[in-house]
């Protein structure tokens, strides 16, 4: 992965900075306005979770590429990392209709939908790391 920029999330300001970093990178890679909005929404959700449940952590944004059938594929990768309480039952939180806030559609399943690739690693008591990629089409 090439250069990666990280933003610390500890306040709501951090959430906005993380969005800004994601927006800049998305534009730079060449994403259109719809995908930009999807990427920033995903970042918001991940950053808010850090802010709400782990108190602090960081969001890193980077460009990734992969060799595909039609040449090199470019994408944007979000990594959200914290050493907070972790998530006990990942399967449960990834199920539709689970979010505690009753927030329709968003939450972690929403992030998974907005992005092309989604990976979550979490250990109770140790923290959570979520990686998500959006590929440029």
């Amino acid at each position: 992965m090439s250069s990666q920029s990280c933003v610390e999330v500890h306040t709501e300001w951090g959430i906005v900075s993380a969005r800004q970093a994601g927006r800049n990178k998305a534009k730079e890679i060449g994403f259109g306005n719809v995908d930009q909005a999807r990427i920033t929404t995903a970042i918001s959700e991940l950053a808010r979770n850090i802010y709400l449940y782990a108190e602090k952590g960081e969001i890193c944004i980077g460009e990734v590429s992969e060799m595909g059938g039609a040449g090199v594929k470019k994408g944007l990768q979000i990594t959200a990392k914290d050493v907070g309480p972790g998530i006990d039952n990942i399967r449960e939180v990834m199920a539709d209709g689970f979010t505690t806030s009753g927030g329709l559609g968003a939450g972690l399943p929403g992030v998974k939908r907005l992005m092309d690739h989604f990976d979550i690693e979490s250990t109770s008591g140790e923290g959570t790391t979520i990686t998500a990629i959006k590929w440029l089409r």
């Binding site: 909005a37 929404t41 539709d96 559609g105 929403g110």
Partner: peptide, 18 residues
């Protein structure tokens, strides 16, 4: 407006999957 509509899009997809 686009940013506002993202949430509706997600809610719609969730509705489909449910």
């Amino acid at each position: 407006l686009l940013e506002v509509m993202i949430g509706y899009g997600l809610a719609y997809q969730e509705h489909q999957s449910l």
